[in-house]
Design a binder for these strands. Structure first.
Length: 475
RNA sequence: GGCCCCAUCGUCUAGUGGUCUAGGACAUCAGGUUCUCAUCCUGAAAACCGGGGUUCGAGUCCCCGUGGGGUCACCA
């Protein structure tokens, strides 16, 4: 039975939940569903200071927006709950104690708290040339001594006791390669913090065991901490599940992975949804960012993706995010979305009152020429709000006003009337229509003019032309 | 910097030793359709990081360089 999980930590602002987030949930979901397994959602809120309830809420909402549903999770429960790590504290504490008993871990009463900035700066310094792994003196303190300090009530952390001469090895399920790391390259990382909460390393292993996860699939940033996890599995006496590492999406501006820290929501899910990208389009774009099917197919619904999903298609090298291609996908999806659905999507974005009937007329005209819903709103604005006065050719506007005033308000009538006028004056058709376009819509880029005038109505069309006819400005 | 991962058009990728004069998509450019823009159609330009091996034969296997990324916290 295949059981996968998506285990985000609800830290940072809700709008910092980014696209990389969805992609990892998606692939885990696809693997489980393709094989009739379960997909588990687990909330990793072990960082008491940074975890936020509203961000946890945003995680649920985001996944649902993309149609990714979980079989077990904090909100829906399941046989291996609770699914929120802050509710499983005793389990981690028990595991940590067991590890100490088996000499896989030890108490450290003097663990120094280092500042994040200080640590990062040290990476740049020369001393890093011969990086020493963390091996506190507490490592060799006798258990009797530790017991004494423990009874005295001194605060402590529990660290992994990594054997220097051990060789850690596992075969990455995605990279399809054996990865080997020497014990001396691995630090005695903290497993249980002084506040009694576990660190990620302990919690993730304890839970993946408890929840019977068969495939642990996560981002490549986790490769280097996998040895510690291997060590914990061993210490706890459980077999290691399949472990695989996905690619990391790179920011085109920096070439680095985008994280929830260093940006103002530039890659946040909310940011894209707000700008009028459809969840289906975003999802489809994401599917192909780090995964490819055997054939040249590009368009997939979620269900189709799940059916087609094949582990072999997962890439090894990190892709760069490309907004242009996302735009293309979004345009494709907008064009294939039925008009009535588009209407519902557009309505909340409009800053003026209108009727469904009018929108129904307008939507077919604009959907062909935009790539986002926001573009759509922009393009249809002139139907409701008269544009600012433009510098236009007076003769064109005057002539049009005259003939249109007499025309029956029908497509063919309007067209022949206008075209006759062009012929009569020996104007260039394009120039003439451009003058009208500017006067009526205020832009050089609009839906087809006659259709637009039809919707605008005769009186409004004439009013806009008149407004321009009185305008002193000449071209 | 140590350790680890990766390496095909600008970007996402197909390619699992011969069918590769390397295929598709986005973007770009040109043409067609057209009252603008867009859609749509047609076409063009565009890549196997470098050097050694292995082999009758290498984009495909091995090694070394180079380049890119990740990581090095009482954050995940």
């Amino acid at each position: 039975m295949i059981r996968t999980r998506f285990a985000p930590s609800p830290t940072g602002l809700p709008e910092s939940i980014h696209l990389g987030f969805v992609i990892r949930a998606l692939w885990n979901y696809a693997l489980a569903k393709k094989n009739g397994g379960q997909f588990v959602l687990r909330i990793e809120d072990t960082d008491q200071k940074r975890s936020r309830k509203d961000t946890e809420e945003a995680i649920y909402i985001s996944l649902k927006q993309f149609g990714i549903n979980w079989d077990e999770g904090p909100d829906v429960g399941g046989p291996y709950g609770p699914y929120r790590q802050s509710e499983r504290l005793e389990k981690y504490q028990q595991a940590a104690k067991l590890l100490v008993e088996k000499d896989y871990a030890y108490y450290d009463f003097d663990a120094a708290v280092r500042e994040k900035e200080e640590i990062k700066e040290s990476y740049e310094s020369k001393e890093f040339t011969d990086q020493l792994k963390i091996r506190p003196a507490a490592r060799s303190v006798s258990s009797a001594e530790s017991q004494k300090r423990l009874e005295a009530g001194e605060p402590y952390v529990i660290r992994a006791k990594i054997p220097e001469d051990k060789v850690f090895e596992f075969t990455d399920w995605i990279l399809k390669k054996k990865i080997r790391v020497l014990g001396k390259e691995v630090s005695d990382l903290i497993l249980l913090k002084s506040d009694g909460f576990p660190t990620y390393h302990l919690a993730v292993v304890v839970d993946d065991i408890a929840m019977q996860i068969s495939h642990v699939l996560r981002g490549q940033e986790w490769i280097s901490s996998t040895p510690v996890h291997l060590f914990i599995y061993e210490g706890l006496g459980y077999p290691v599940p399949e472990i695989g590492h996905f690619t990391v999406i790179l920011d085109p501006a920096t070439g680095k992975k985008f994280s929830k820290r260093d940006m103002e929501g530039k890659f946040g899910i909310k940011h894209w949804l707000d700008r009028g990208y459809l969840p289906e389009a975003i999802l489809n774009y994401l599917m192909l960012l780090g995964w490819a099917p055997k054939d040249d197919r590009e368009l997939f619904t979620l269900d189709e993706f799940v059916q087609t999903f094949d582990q072999a298609g997962l890439q090894k090298s990190n892709p760069i995010f490309d907004e242009k291609k996302l735009n293309w996908f979004n345009g494709q999806y907008i064009r294939q979305t039925p008009h009535d659905q588009l209407l519902q999507l557009i309505k909340p974005k409009l800053e003026y009152e209108t009727t469904d009937d009018k929108l129904t007329d307008i939507i077919p005209l604009v959907k062909e020429r935009v790539s986002t819903l926001a573009d759509m709103v922009d393009m249809m604005r002139f139907f409701f709000i008269a544009p600012e006065l433009q510098a236009v050719n007076q003769e064109h506007v005057q002539a049009a006003r005259q003939v249109l005033g007499k025309a029956t308000w029908e497509k063919t009538d309007i067209e022949t009337a206008l075209l006759d006028e062009v012929k009569a004056h020996d104007w260039k058709t394009g120039d003439f229509f451009m003058s009208l376009r500017l006067a009526i819509a205020g832009s050089k880029v609009t839906p087809p003019l006659t259709e637009s005038m039809l919707i605008l109505g005769q009186s409004e069309t004439l009013a806009r032309l008149s407004a321009h006819a009185q305008n002193e400005t000449q071209t």
